[in-house]
Nucleic acid binder design. Sequence first.
DNA 1: GCATTAACACGTA
DNA 2: TACGTGTTAATGC
Length: 246
Amino acid sequence: MQLPKISRPGTVLRERKRAPTEAELAEIPWLQSLTPPERERAVAALVVGDAEAGDHICRFGRPVTYWFGLVDGLLKMSNDDSQGPVITFTGVAPGGWFGEGTVLKHEQYRYNITALRKSRVAGLPVETFDWLLDHSIGFNRFVMHQLNERLGQFIAAREIDRLNNPDLRVARNLAALFHPLLSPNVGGVLRITQQELAYLVGLSRQRVNQALTTLSAKGWIRVDYGGLRVLNLVALRSGVLDDGVP
DNA sequence: GCATTAACACGTA
DNA sequence: TACGTGTTAATGC
């Protein structure tokens, strides 16, 4: 399987950061949990960067500088590929924030985050993250919920890894991508090409196309040009497919 | 048997 | 035009 080319060696926020616009701030869910003075401090520190497909948002082993969020686009979180093949752990959809575990411990990033398509990424500097953690109850509540949900996500991921049915793997990965709390802005429609989904799930594009046809026939999703619509999130998350045994 | 790569025609932005 | 989709054929585990 071919992976997206890495177009630049550095990271997006290090090289091309700028101040966020009002429209971009509106896409950051936890800002609404802050008091006006807390929000003011957060907004002043927030930065935004534009990433092309294949660009790195953060790199394995680098010291932590930001807590990251996705404003627009699609990201994937994967392992360090220097010792073996790339393993994608999860996708990040717009509105999702990640890396809080690393930021909390002031350690090095333990994953690579790369853009699967042209994306806009927001970053909150570690110092501001720490300050909000010390001063804002609303922020603490958001981070706590985030951690709790991610714990559930990883438990579910172990189950998905053990599925040998490709159709179900696609279904469960789609459900994870649509997670309402970690990705609150996704809504019912997801703009993702079948090639991108293939990278995410770890299957070929052709097999993903076949899986989408199956899921579509079950009425769980509807396939559109350049994207798809989730019709039955519950079924994607926990539904079963009969194996066609007569 | 099943998934993968390669290759193709076709439709859409 | 460039890209995404849907399909088929050949190949490998």
